[in-house]
Amino acid sequence: MDLLALADFNLVARHGGFGKASRATGRPKATLSRRVAELESGLDLRLFERGARNLKLTEEGRALFERTGRLLAELDETTSAIASGGHTPKGKLRISAPVLFSQSAMGKIAAEFALKYPEVRLEVTTEDRPVDMIEEGYDLVIRVNPDPDESLIGRAFLRDRLVVVASPALPRPTKDVAAPGVVRGAGERQRWRVMTPSEPSAISIEPVLGLASLIMVRDAVRIGVGAARLPISLVAHDLADGRLVNWGDIDGPEIALWALYPSRRLLSARVSAFLDFLKQSFPNGTPDELAAYINR
């Protein structure tokens, strides 16, 4: 198989068209078209459906793109590593991170990493959706309790837990009375099961505010408008200072933040450096470490 033709096919697939790939890379559009046609002829397969205005991968084309994209990226990283001595992280590092972690900690992490590795151009996007690492060109993603994915591997580097918090001025509700609540998004009346020092119990909540982010939820709870479920790392400082009180830990699975990447083989120096940096920033991966980092 012609490796150059395969590389050009991946360029076109990644950018979604011959013209876009040509503009992004500076390679002639006619050359890209010819290389892809030669690859299709050699494989005796149609890799793209060519419409009047758009280009779409066939089922066979998508399978080839998914399986060869990582291999070509690893090959490129290997040659770059050899050329640079193999140990100096450099080049672009694209990361996708969840909204709350980005708002509370990622700015500091990114800045400190950039100071330590000035030859790495770090780009961080913030979103909670499960991005497609290969198609969207990410080197690493950070996700909360991710679903199993055979194409990705990684490690949990932080753990957190949810607690119900409120202003000290807000009375804790009795069994038959609902407390005003601040929730993320829209919500109807609900019951939150919590663990207390004595025994498990349930708190009835009547939402009075629906807000888009947990940072907003925390700020509203500080004002005293209602109770909320929040990560302990986000409110540990408020609890220590007495601005908020803890009504109990949510009875449920813990929150784990994972750093995920496509392959362990030939892991780039950039990704390895960032994974090591996360480990150095949170050596034990506890909620207390994250809380201290946020409020440092």
Rank of each mutant, 00 (worst) to 15 (best):
228 A>Q: 03
68 T>L: 11
294 I>S: 03
180 P>Q: 05
247 W>R: 04
266 L>Y: 08
23 R>D: 14
118 P>W: 13
243 R>V: 03
73 A>N: 10
181 G>T: 03
60 E>I: 02
3 L>T: 15
219 D>Q: 12
50 R>D: 09
235 V>S: 03
6 L>I: 14
65 F>G: 07
64 L>Y: 13
131 V>I: 15
19 G>I: 06
166 A>Q: 07
37 A>C: 05
72 L>S: 06
284 N>R: 14
176 D>P: 00
179 A>E: 02
4 L>T: 13
46 R>T: 11
77 E>R: 09
205 I>A: 04
283 P>E: 04
100 L>E: 11
67 R>V: 10
15 H>L: 08
292 A>T: 08
165 V>A: 14
199 E>L: 10
153 I>V: 15
21 A>M: 09
189 R>F: 01
108 K>A: 14
182 V>S: 08
224 G>M: 06
220 A>F: 07
244 L>W: 05
45 L>I: 08
42 G>I: 05
219 D>N: 13
205 I>S: 01
286 T>M: 05
66 E>S: 10
7 A>S: 15
274 F>M: 08
226 G>M: 05
65 F>W: 11
218 R>L: 12
59 E>W: 09
214 L>I: 02
242 G>Y: 03
57 L>K: 13
239 L>H: 07
78 T>L: 15
277 F>I: 04
246 N>R: 05
242 G>D: 03
253 P>Q: 06
213 S>P: 00
153 I>G: 14
22 S>W: 10
188 E>R: 13
124 V>L: 13
261 Y>V: 00
73 A>E: 15
231 P>Q: 03
126 T>V: 15
30 A>C: 01
25 T>D: 05
64 L>S: 13
180 P>I: 09
92 K>L: 05
147 D>C: 02
277 F>K: 07
184 R>I: 15
211 L>G: 11
15 H>I: 02
99 V>K: 09
91 G>V: 00
104 S>I: 14
95 I>K: 07
176 D>V: 02
212 A>Y: 06
197 P>H: 02
91 G>W: 00
132 D>V: 09
213 S>D: 08
61 G>S: 10
240 A>I: 02
239 L>E: 04
126 T>M: 13
180 P>D: 09
273 A>C: 09
191 R>P: 00
177 V>N: 02
241 D>F: 00
15 H>E: 14
22 S>F: 11
276 D>K: 11
211 L>N: 11
179 A>Y: 01
127 E>W: 10
126 T>H: 02
171 P>T: 11
2 D>I: 11
240 A>R: 12
190 Q>L: 13
101 F>E: 01
70 R>L: 12
267 L>A: 01
84 S>G: 13
202 A>Q: 05
274 F>T: 01
169 A>P: 00
152 L>T: 08
98 P>G: 06
42 G>H: 14
100 L>W: 10
151 S>V: 07
85 G>P: 08
274 F>V: 01
282 F>P: 05
38 E>Q: 15
11 L>A: 10
